[in-house]
Design a protein around this nucleic acid. Sequence first.
DNA 1: GAGCAGTAGTTAATCGATTACACATGTATC
DNA 2: GATACATGTGTAATCGATTAACTACTGCTC
Lengths: 321, 321
Amino acid sequence: MKDVAQHAGVSTATVSRVLNGHAAPTPETRERVLAAIEELGYRPNALARSLRTTSTQTLGLVISDLLNPFFAEIARAVEDEARSHGYCVVIGNADESAEQEATYVRTLLDRRVDGLLLCPATDDPSLVREVSAGGVPLVLLDRTVRGATCPVVRADGSEALTALARRLVGAGHTRIGVIAGPPNTSTGRERTDVLTGALGGLAQVVHGDFRQESGSQAAARLIDDGATALVAMDNLMGLGALGEVRARGLQIPHDIAFAVFDDQPWFPLLDPPITVIAQPTVEMGKAAARSLLALIDGRQPDDVRLTAKLVLRGSLGEAEL
Amino acid sequence: MKDVAQHAGVSTATVSRVLNGHAAPTPETRERVLAAIEELGYRPNALARSLRTTSTQTLGLVISDLLNPFFAEIARAVEDEARSHGYCVVIGNADESAEQEATYVRTLLDRRVDGLLLCPATDDPSLVREVSAGGVPLVLLDRTVRGATCPVVRADGSEALTALARRLVGAGHTRIGVIAGPPNTSTGRERTDVLTGALGGLAQVVHGDFRQESGSQAAARLIDDGATALVAMDNLMGLGALGEVRARGLQIPHDIAFAVFDDQPWFPLLDPPITVIAQPTVEMGKAAARSLLALIDGRQPDDVRLTAKLVLRGSLGEAEL
DNA sequence: GAGCAGTAGTTAATCGATTACACATGTATC
DNA sequence: GATACATGTGTAATCGATTAACTACTGCTC
């Protein structure tokens, strides 16, 4: 910057004003400065700028698993929305581990992100409290924690799950296997509660960990126990469960009905196409980013609850008639 | 930091020394400083530290599309490897647009990442030159550019493609549709060249853009032109093409043989399971991160070429006998 | 022509860390 | 007892920007 100033025959203050569009420099000075910048190929040091202004124009996003297309889509949406407002997004991968999540959150805070989006790995509120205590704007995404005091953006699957339950019961299923998420996550618990509630006593629940492998194992147990229908509570466990169904040579929907919470582009390609509860992922990501930006702006955004929808495709068999 | 120093009755220099494990402070002073840090809940400002040390312990990764599971997996692997060496990764989404790619690269440079991993959207070397001119360590991943002067990490699919071609020809296919990547990407061009070369005059090539939609369109044209086999050059175009095949009610492999470059966890679940050329994505990501860290370390890593493998699963029909 | 307002630009403090150098103290050597 | 050397800590410059406070100049009014 000093070089640029010297080159243009002005002070660094003037260069800074040109750079930030401040209300001072003569058009003529402006030109000279811009020419010098161009000539020297100068680029301002964002670190120094941020140190001085205490604003990094960066949002932190900590998610459970980048490999989960659900989160990848969310990340993508957050990023799009943030960029359109001049913000960058730094993504942290917590790998469904509370410990790694905490590490990442702290790293992002140390780097002074202007705000944080968090998909909490567990519903333990201590990390959230820590962030809030630091005064950093925080929005929870997809999942919440006990006694959350910050805005939350999530999808509401109650209606869809109830509708799904009604169909399964109506079709005469009496042993319905539910491959649930971990009970210490809000989504894991709530989805399962709603579904099992709506199924009356017909549900058999096995908990997985939102990963593929746990899906196959849970499916194996449930099938062994005589389930005639399977509902997986997220797409990765759904993938695992499908693998198990295939491995056993069972036909969907003839031998077993099948549904998944979360849609994926390839579900329609299976034979039969898989019935799902689709979450508005892109909307969730965008809404969360908007809430966070509002918070950074000093406004107080409301919680956002978007609706997940049941999409019938055929894998439930007669339940879809 | 000043507060901590005051609290512990020492100077900021000593606090800094304790923080960085420097070879000076007395165990007793150390304790006092650590106690003060604990008590005040002090966390060092990474921006200030980076400004002073000119090291951010951060790598930049610019990829074409986070929603493409291939890149998501790479991102994940890069991140793992980087973290295990104490580095963070900032991911930028170029969306297959050269312009957005350039914007992102510059943003990352402005933030003074210690090094950059780039999956270039086109084979135009100007951006790479710009980065190199800035003296920032750079490694290319998956794709290269014309006359690249930096380390490149990629997968070599020649053998696999040749083997695939041999099988298709051997099975008597005479109109083989190739859904190719954009000709201005190194992977798009090379894979297509190898395959069409190996197919003699039997290939019909339609170029897509590595996205799902272009895959369906290309498939539609090729099927209209009488193709009896389809090979998609990446997983997203493969997904699109599969959709088109299904939409037309064609049976794989009876009506049409099908193969995709890139594996996906759900390919084995289709009926029949899809034959693919699998790239060692995790290895690619890790290798790239390692190369970049070596470069940052002042060493000169060699290019890395990993081998992609043909995985036969049944979607080629008699070509697999 | 003195006084005042307005404009363009400079000087220097500041953000929060790191680190070269200086200094004080204690120990070993002759 | 003087000299040398090691050790632990403090002082202050520095990284590269922003910006409040100040100065210099121009032009206008009375």
